[in-house]
Design a protein around this nucleic acid. Structure first.
Length: 563
RNA sequence: UGCCCGGUCGUCUAAAGGCAGGACAGCUGGUUUUGGUCCAGUCAGUGGGGGUUCGAAUCCUCCCCGGGCAACCA
């Protein structure tokens, strides 16, 4: 391949390189990928990576992507999962060309099996699963042939048809490929193609009692759909020779399999089995608990599709094992929410602040911008009065020099309002501050400040008389250890007992509730100023509004303070 | 201990024989009516040995380390 000297190489991941090569070689005129979830659980952030890889690649190269459910194991699968998966893929912003199911191909797959049987490449085995396991050998020792391996094609076809007809109980017989029991690749030691399961399937009902295994269903489904690039995760690498063997022996469309490293993230588990365990054992409230790394959990938490897509773009895709720092995901959320989140003031831990020189009974409506990053974002009005709530932590009776907040004799700006100076405070017998007494500077009003006073800090506040109580749910990581894969003991040993901290009654500016959208409309994302990004929870009602912390603001003061 | 796949800043990821670059995290400073944002700066890497080459992260070789494979799961 000759390239002109002026041509600039833009960084590409290995899959892009493969696709560009295949397109340039004329191997394919266009590409078709597929996203193949098994409907036996909810999608998580690791699936989001796979989704952006499969849909993103197709989009980039003018191809398309099928959504295909790998529904070959009826005992663990259900329509609930199918529906959640469709919802999540759509929510992430992707459109599939066709919605398909491996079960759509059961009849065709049965024919493929017959084809192999007649070619002497598959046989019915009456061994028990224990016997078959023993025949497999070990990675370091070759396997041994099954006593049923030499059955004639006629006998095999007859038995296989009778398996389908329901003549045998579960586990009595299986169909195996006849390949090589001594292969160094365990997956080539006569793998199972069909097993008997008298189980109700969520789509095919009771019309089948034999079901193809992953290995027999997946590649053939790809081939039937003429998938050009079948992209999966690394654990399927050893399956690739079998994938190719089946396609070759069947003489069908040569889909090709490519593998990438699955996503691992710090402080996070990604196994569907373990996520289900968290749900079933009540460690979390459900698949969509905001602490879960599921798409539905992230959505409920307030993550946006934009943030998740950006995250997937930034982690890129490669073949080496990885452990992505969860702070990158948080960064992507902040980046998007900073641009779009509506600024609102909410006091989490209120203490009363009285402005002693404020005219008795006066309320003033102040303008405050919805988003300083967005000049089109407009303003809102916030009521101000002589009695306010501010954060307890924003006052210190005896403060160090670098504390840019309230303390006797010090001045601060109240966001979008006035500069105030602390004159005095009241504490109870335990030393807890119960009231802070300040004076305000009338000529320091935000936007028309002629006071000349420079306040080092700015505080958020809520007028006590106008404040509305809301519940705030703050989250911390669900696990206490960074790398669950190498952590000692069971993953449940590392669950963070303080991953949810509920503030039952925070005080919000009144306008916050007016912002809440109608039930099915898109909910707005908020930045509670100086706190973090928040999103209305599904539990929220007009009587009892509830907000989830999506992610906190970066807090360099907390860092300094810790030292 | 057989076969397969990997190994580049703390974490991800580029560099296709020719200046090891970017992002996140960290740290400094500046701006700021959010201790946010933004801006500037800074710290930090080719697992090891040998070889080929004018030149190696890249090619060869040996070693080391990590991961996967023995479901009628996907």
């Amino acid at each position: 391949m000759s390239e002109s000297a002026s041509e600039v190489r833009t960084p590409k991941n290995f899959l892009e390189e493969i696709i560009e090569r295949d397109l340039a070689d004329g191997r394919h005129e266009s590409i078709l990928t597929r996203f193949p979830p098994e409907p036996n659980g909810y999608l998580h952030i690791g699936h989001a990576k796979s989704i952006t890889v499969n849909f993103g690649l197709a989009k980039k190269y003018g191809g398309a992507t099928n959504l295909r459910f790998d529904d070959t194991n009826p005992v663990t699968e259900s329509v609930e999962y199918v529906e959640s998966i469709k919802r999540d893929v759509k929510w992430l912003g992707y459109e599939w060309q066709q919605e398909l199911y491996a079960s759509d191909y059961f009849e065709q797959l049965f024919e493929f099996a017959l084809q192999l049987i007649r070619a002497g490449l598959a046989y019915v085995d009456d061994s028990t699963s224990e016997e078959i396991a023993a025949q497999k050998g070990t990675p370091t020792q070759p396997g041994t042939d099954s006593p049923y391996r030499s059955r004639t094609p006629e006998e095999n076809e007859d038995l296989f048809r009778r398996m389908r007809a329901g003549e045998f109980p579960d586990g009595a017989r299986i169909l195996r490929a006849k390949i090589d029991m001594a292969s160094p690749n365990m997956h080539m030691r006569d793998p199972v193609l069909y097993r008997i399961k008298h189980a109700h399937h969520h789509r095919t009902g009771d019309s089948w009692c034999i079901y193809p295994t992953y290995d027999f269903a997946h590649g053939q489904s790809d081939s039937i759909e003429k998938i050009t690039h079948s992209i999966c995760t690394l654990e399927f690498v050893p399956h690739r020779p079998l994938y190719e063997w089946l396609i070759e022996k069947l003489g069908i469309f040569p889909s090709k399999q490519f593998e990438f490293a699955r996503l691992n993230m710090t402080y996070t588990i990604m196994s569907k089995r373990k996520l289900m365990q968290l749900v079933n054992e009540g460690h979390v409230a459900g698949w969509d608990d905001p602490r879960m790394p599921t798409i539905s959990g992230l959505r409920r938490r307030g993550y946006t599709p934009e943030a998740i897509r950006e995250f997937c773009a930034r982690i890129s895709v490669a073949k080496r094992d990885n452990l992505i720092d969860v702070s990158l995901l948080e960064f992507c959320a902040r980046e998007h929410l900073n641009r779009t989140g509506l600024r609102r003031m909410v006091v989490f831990d209120p203490v009363k602040l009285v402005i002693t020189n404020w005219p008795q009974g006066k309320t003033e409506l102040l303008e405050s911008e919805n988003n300083p990053e967005d000049t089109e974002g407009g303003d809102r009005q916030v009521p101000f009065s002589g009695t306010l709530w501010i954060e307890q932590e924003d006052f210190m009776a005896d403060a160090p020099r670098k504390f840019f907040r309230l303390s006797p004799g010090r001045s601060v700006r109240l966001k979008s309002a006035y500069i105030i100076t602390c004159e005095d405070y009241v504490a109870d017998e335990n030393g807890t501050v119960t009231e802070i007494r300040c004076t305000y500077h009338p000529d320091s009003r935000s936007g028309s400040d002629t006071s000349g006073i420079k306040a080092k800090g700015t505080l958020h506040w809520v007028s006590a008389e106008h404040a509305v109580p809301v519940e705030v749910r703050n989250y911390d990581r669900l696990f206490l250890v960074e790398d669950l894969a190498t952590a000692e003991g069971d993953f449940l040993d590392h669950v963070n007992p303080d991953s949810l901290i509920t503030i039952p009654q925070a005080m919000a500016e009144p306008g916050l509730l007016d912002d809440l959208a109608a039930p099915d409309a898109n909910r707005p994302h908020f930045q509670f100023m100086r706190k973090g990004y928040y999103f209305e929870d599904d539990d929220s009602t007009p009587e009892k509004p509830v907000f989830n912390q999506t992610v906190g603001l970066r807090d360099t003061w907390a860092k300094v303070n810790k030292k």
